[in-house]
Nucleic acid binder design. Sequence first.
RNA 1: GGGGCCGUGGUGCAGUUUGGUUAGCACGCUGGCCUGUCAAGCCAGAGGUCGCGGGUUCAAGUCCCGUCGGCCCCGCCA
Length: 591
Amino acid sequence: MRDWKRTHTCGALRGMDAGSGVVLVGWLHRLRTHGGVNFADLRDRYGMTQVVLRDEAEMHGRSVTGLRGEFVLGIRGRVSARPDGMVNPKMATGEIEVLADEVVVLNESEVPPFVIEDETNANEDLRLKYRYLDLRRTPMKNNIVLRHRVAQAAREVLNGEDFLEVETPTLVKQTPEGARDFLVPSRLQPGKFYALPQSPQLYKQLLMISGLDRYYQLARCLRDEDLRADRQPEHTQIDIEMSFVTEDDVFALCERLMSHLFRTVLDRDLEVPFRRLTYAEAMSRYGSDKPDLRFGLEIVEVGDCLQTSGLKIFQDALSSGNTICAIRVPGAAGWSRKEIEAFGSIMEEAGGRGVLWTKAEAGGFTGGVAKHLDESCRDSLRERLGIGDTDLVLLAADKGSRVNVLLGVLRRPLAEKLGIIPEGVDAFAWVTEFPLFEWSEEEDKWESTHHMFCMPRCEDLDYLDSDPGRVRGQVYDLVYNGIELGSGSIRCHLRSLQEKIMKRVGFPAELAEERFGFLLKAFEHGAPPHGGIALGLDRLVMVMACRETIRDVIAFPKTTTGGSLVDGCPSRVPARELEELGLTQSELKKD
RNA sequence: GGGGCCGUGGUGCAGUUUGGUUAGCACGCUGGCCUGUCAAGCCAGAGGUCGCGGGUUCAAGUCCCGUCGGCCCCGCCA
C-alpha cells in the first residue's frame, strides 16, 4: 500500500491551497450520493473537509455506496476551489473541496449508537458508555480543547511569576475530619491503609517550610462523597501556595491569573480588582456565602418597619427576637397568587415556613399581608426598600440569619423569572472573613469552617477560648456568578497557635501529635508565614464553556453512583487478590 | 440515609391517567433512483422480550410489589 501519511488536517485547507495535491485522513461524517458525483465530509479533530468522489476515483475494491458513517478513510486528491455559488460559508474549509483520485478504507465502523453531530439527542448514559464517540462531537471536543487551553494558560501565568510545579503523593496518610477518604490497602503492611488525597493541603504547606516559596500543581483531589452536577469523586484543582504573603497578594495573583485566562481563552476582559465582601455581608445581603452578583434582589431587614403591624406572625417574630427580612421584586406586582406561592414552595423545600407578600400598586399596597400594614408600616417599608409602583415585596420571618438564607434561595429563581440575569457578565467576587469555626449540632462540638490550618484574624485571637464562633479567619472564597470557584486562606504557621486551634476542634495535644505531629514538628523548624488557594479547574472550565455540569468538561466522568460507564468500574476483583491484601468480602452480596 | 423525575425498535419521544385487536411518530439504518450537495431530495423496506423479576386479571407497555440503571435535589462534600 502507498504511504497514507496525511499532508494536511481536515480543518487546514483554504482557497489559496487550490491546485495542491494532498492526502487527508479522517472519519466519514456524512456521504451524499448524486449518481455520478458524490460528496463525502471527512472529519477529524481539526475540522471538516468536503471530498468529491467521482466514478473515476480509485477505490481499491470499494464502491462509494459501500462507504458508511464513521469509516476511517484516507483520501489522496487535489484541492479545488469550489465553483461559483458553491462556497459554503458555514465551513472553515468551505472555499475548497478535495477532488479524490484515490480512496482507501483504513478501518470500518459499526453504525454508531447515536449520530455524531453537534446537537445530539442521545441520553447521557449512552454518551458515557460510548464516550469515545461522544468526544468526536464538536462541542465535546471543544470542551476538552478549552480545558487544555485553560490549564496551559494557568501554567503560563504561574511559571511567569516564579512558581514551581511540584507533584505531591497520591498515596497519603488518612486525614481525620473532612470528607470521607478513598482507602487503599497496603500489601506490604497488611491491615494498614493509604488514603487518596482530598487535596495536597499539608504537602504544600511542607513545601513552603522547605523554602520553595511559590508552588502550584494541577492536583487531582479525591473525596468519597455523593456526587452532584458540579461534584465528582475526583476533581482537579489549580492548587497554589505562597510564602510571605497576605490575603491581598493571593487575591491580586488570582486576579492576574483569571484575567489572563479569560483574555487568552475567551477573549474577554475582566474588571479587576474583583469586588470584595465579607462573609457576614454576603450572608445578610444575599443569604449565601457564594452570592450571584449579576443581579440585585438584595435582602433587607425590615423588622423595625413592622412594629405597628397587627399580623401575628410579625408580632411573634418581633417579641421572640426573630428576624424579619424582605426582598423587593421590581415590576412583579402583576404576578398571580399562584406564581408568588410557587416561591413559597421553594422556600418550604429549603426548610422555611413559606413566604409572605404584598404588592405595591398605584400608590398603595394590595394583596397578601397588605391589610395588616398601617400607614406607618407602609411608609417605612417604602423608604427602606425603595418601593416603586409595580413592585412585589416578599417577606419572611425566622430565627436569626436563617431567614436570610431562606430568602437567598429565592434570588436565582426570581431573577430567572424576571429575566434580569444579564448575558455574558462575569461577576467575580471575593468573600472574605469566613468564621474560623462553626458549631456542629450533630457532633456537639466546634468544627473548622474551612480546615484547621487557617490563620485567625489577629484582632479575633482573644475569642479563641471565650467565644469561638466570633473568631474570623483569614479565609476566603472566590465566587463567580453564584458558583464557588475556589477557596483558600492564610495558614497558621505557629505551632502553639495551631495546637490551640486543633484543641478547639477536638484534637487535644496527644491526638494532634499522633495525627499531625509531622506538621507541628515542621512548624518548629522555621516555618515561614504562608497562604494560598485552590481553584476548581473543572468548575472553572464548566463556566467558561457555559455548561451545566462538570461531566461535560471531564473526558471520562463518573455517574451519580460513582460508576464509569465506559469501562464499568468499580468492579469486583478476584478473591485471591483480596486475600493477598488481608481483606475478605464476606459481608458483601454477590451479583 | 431521604425526596423527586426517567427507562417503549439503533436514537429521541408518544401511548400508561381510564388494562382490550396489527404499540405510533421523527431521526438513524438497509435497498433503489439521482452529476453540485453540504441537516441533500425522492421511492421502497427492515427493525420492538415496552429495563429486569414477581403478582393481580379472561387480558398488562398500562395496575400492584420488588429490583437494576440514569438524572436532579436535601443530607454529606473541612
